[in-house]
């Protein structure tokens, strides 16, 4: 089952770079990250890649394999034929630091802009009561391993750097939805989602859902329901009147 695989890997830094060809041993049962590690150990000791758990749980080794956003540790070599050239490049939506390591600070900036969990008044530690069926909606979103593949693939920012300041990306719109659906969270996040995080820029093409390694239905279960909640608020005549009478923030 061992064969010589053909790899083409992007090497370089913020100054520029290019694809480099490698021939490297591939064994039964291996994943792309195994091959990258073999390259480090035998041919390219300074080849930069992020990884941690190698078990699909930490979301560190995100990259693009033949142009598709993937976790390197969960991409098995058996999905490719032995004579196929496998191209590995860093996530395209972010600037590169070196080789396969991108600058993902955009995501950490956006994470700070979502209002945190707001505990309910009058409930102390140990007093929280929630039903399983009520926590399951938010639990689905909390499976997120923050690999940022959804952010990478989302066409709103993938080739549109200019949209980044106004758009939090699927991961953090989903974070807002997660808190909005938390049974005990006390804050209302609908205006923020629309006005601060750019929910309106999402036109539900579901690219994020397709690349999610955790299989989270980001679009169907988080983004669309969030859009509906925003719409319900904006066009509800009672809310509209209430806002007129009691101006927010004044």
């Amino acid at each position: 089952m061992t064969y010589k695989g053909h790899f083409r890997i992007w090497r370089g830094d913020e100054e520029g770079g290019s694809l480099e060809d490698f021939e490297v041993e591939v064994n039964e049962g291996e994943v792309v990250l195994d091959i990258i590690h073999r390259l480090q150990a035998t041919q390219a000791p300074d080849l930069a890649v992020r990884w941690n758990c190698k078990a699909g749980k930490c979301g560190s080794c995100s990259a693009e394999v033949n142009g598709r956003p993937r976790l390197l540790c969960m991409t098995r070599m058996s999905i490719f034929s032995a004579d196929e050239i496998i191209t590995v490049t860093p996530m395209r939506a972010f600037s590169v630091i070196k080789d396969l390591v991108p600058d993902v600070s955009y995501n950490y900036t956006k994470a700070r802009e979502v209002t945190s969990f707001t505990p309910p008044e009058g409930l102390g530690p140990g007093e929280y009561r929630m039903q399983q069926e009520d926590v399951e909606r938010s639990q689905e979103f909390r499976k997120c391993i923050e690999c940022f593949l959804c952010q990478d693939t989302c066409h709103v920012v993938r080739d549109h750097e200019e949209n980044k300041s106004a758009f939090a990306g699927p991961r953090f719109l989903m974070r807002a939805a997660e808190l909005e659906m938390h049974p005990l969270d006390a804050a209302d996040r609908r205006d923020d989602a629309q006005d601060e995080h750019g929910l309106g820029m999402c036109n539900i093409t579901k690219c994020c859902t397709e690349v999610c390694p955790e299989g989270i239905k980001i679009t169907d279960n988080a983004l669309i329901p969030m859009k509906e909640r925003v719409a319900g608020r904006r066009y509800d005549p009672v809310v509209w009147l209430g806002n007129k009478l009691f101006k927010r923030g004044s």
């Binding site: 102390g124 530690p125 140990g126 009561r129 399983q132 926590v135 938010s138 639990q139 938390h182």
Partner: peptide, 20 residues
Amino acid sequence: PDRVWELETYGALFDRTGDG
């Protein structure tokens, strides 16, 4: 136990018993 309950006040969502 106090440390686990405290996490709920930070927003953690553990699986629930029948009585919540």
